[in-house]
Design a protein around this nucleic acid. Structure first.
Length: 425
DNA sequence: TCTGGGGTCCTAGGACCC
DNA sequence: TCTGGGGTCCTAGGACCC
């Protein structure tokens, strides 16, 4: 039995989302910035043509942005998440078996569709997504996921393909591998690309000619799987149900450098609350909480400091209040005065379903009370926005808030401006 | 002045056990 | 003088993804 996959990838996704709601941006250079308006994380084709690279710090291209009238946006993840849902919904019309691989990519299992005209079908998918959502997409179709990735990349690059490429004929597959640089292969990053080139492997085709043992020795079993996939043997299955997360992390750079424990504490408390909310939304609890802090690694004259601390909580939890409590303890253990802090983060691990908590005989926390309080808070924040209500430890001043100077409106989920209510426990 | 955030998997090596 | 060996668990680090 032969397998068949399509990879559908949204073109310049975040930039395209901004365009859907403001068509005057069509054919204009558009970039979307990372949190804190730090660097470029999405570019329209026109912005790419100006030489703007992925990851370029915004301040370094500010001149270009002004001269060439580049439209820059702060990232608006609520909007992008909503548009992503619409795209994925549309794709599910074409096969019951889809894997949402990332916010802007989806694998479709086309299983035994070999007897239909794949090219027409792929085009139909592409046209429908664009018509229903306004987002342009590219499709690659091939017998394995890794080859579908190759096909997708070429579909985007080649003017002739114009966004759709079907790779089922061995000759076409070979030509495609030959045209793909080894560093552009899914699963080969900078380190491996450098290593492979040193061994005279420059294209995906060169790579498929390497021996399995050699690949295993230098690239582990992950490399071997990739090798087989590129040779047409499917090793990576469709994952329709996303496996439960093993860790959840919330971390941010601060809007400015912070020196006081109070400010770092408030920021960290907010990240802890965000982790708790994520846990609740997937109906799980965590037993370990890790906090890290760091100074600005780009700053040459500042003294550098990084540290982290993990605390095992007596009972796994998803309560804002409890998580904030332990995260604050962890922070106090690693915080040192007289440093310029630029970033902190909270990571929760040892995640279990919330109905499988091991209770502690000496537990003093009223878990029912916490749980009903959290339910009320979630209802309020879901309806009125996340700043509607919060635990007081998250602070009032928000000196640490990140920059977001160029945000587009919440087109799909309008949130009214409502004053925050603070809960003190 | 200003440089993102959130994940995954695999391996080697040490600790520990019998 | 000779000083086992196999298994498991955990962690740190390194690679990758979007």
């Amino acid at each position: 039995m032969t397998s068949l996959f399509a990879l559908c990838d949204c073109n310049n996704f975040y930039a395209s989302c901004e365009r859907v709601f403001d068509p005057s941006l069509n054919e204009k250079p558009v970039v979307v910035l990372s949190n804190n308006d730090g660097c470029v994380i999405a570019r329209s084709n026109e912005a790419k043509a100006l030489g703007i690279q992925m990851g370029d710090p915004f301040f370094q291209i500010r001149n270009l942005v002004e001269h060439k009238q580049v439209h820059a946006f702060s990232s608006n993840y609520v909007l992008y998440g909503d548009m992503s849902d619409r795209v994925m919904q549309t794709l599910s019309q074409f096969t019951p078996h889809v894997e949402i691989y990332s916010i802007d990519e989806c694998f479709l299992d086309l299983g035994d569709f070999y007897d239909i005209d794949l090219f027409s079908y792929a085009w139909e998918i592409k046209r429908t997504v664009t018509r229903w959502t306004g987002i342009p997409v590219s499709l690659g179709v091939a017998p394995t996921k890794a080859l579908a990735k190759v096909a997708n990349k070429l579909a985007k690059k080649s003017a002739k393909a114009n966004g759709v490429l079907v790779l089922t004929e061995p000759y076409h597959i070979q030509k495609a591998l030959e045209a793909t640089k080894v560093e552009d292969v899914w699963g080969i990053g900078g380190q491996y690309a450098k290593f492979l080139k040193k061994h005279n492997i420059h294209t995906a085709l060169d790579f498929t000619n390497a021996s399995e043992n050699w690949v295993r020795k230098h690239m582990t079993v992950v490399g071997v799987r990739l090798l087989k996939e590129l040779k047409g043997e499917s090793c990576l299955e469709l994952e329709e149900v996303a496996p439960a997360k093993k860790g959840i992390c919330t971390s941010r750079s601060f809007g400015t450098k912070l020196t006081s424990l109070k400010d770092v504490k408030e920021a960290t408390a907010s990240y802890a609350a965000k982790c708790a909310k994520k846990l609740r939304s997937q109906k799980s609890c965590a037993r370990l909480v890790t906090v890290f802090v760091q100074t600005n690694p780009f700053s040459e004259h500042d003294r550098q400091y990084y540290n982290s601390r993990t605390i095992a909580m007596p009972v796994a939890t998803n309560s804002d209040i409890e998580l904030i409590h332990y995260a604050t303890l962890a922070l106090k253990a690693i915080f040192k005065p007289n440093y310029y802090y630029k970033k902190s983060g909270v990571i929760v691990t040892e995640i279990i379903p919330e109905n499988q908590i091991q209770f502690d005989l000496l537990d003093t926390v009223d878990r029912d009370k916490h749980s009903s309080l959290m339910k009320v808070m979630d209802k309020l924040t879901d309806r009125f926005g996340r700043s509607m209500v919060q635990v007081a430890a998250q602070g009032l001043n928000k000196n640490w808030l990140l920059k977001s100077d160029y945000k587009s409106p919440y087109y799909t989920t309008r949130v009214e401006e409502i004053p925050t209510v603070y809960i003190r426990i």
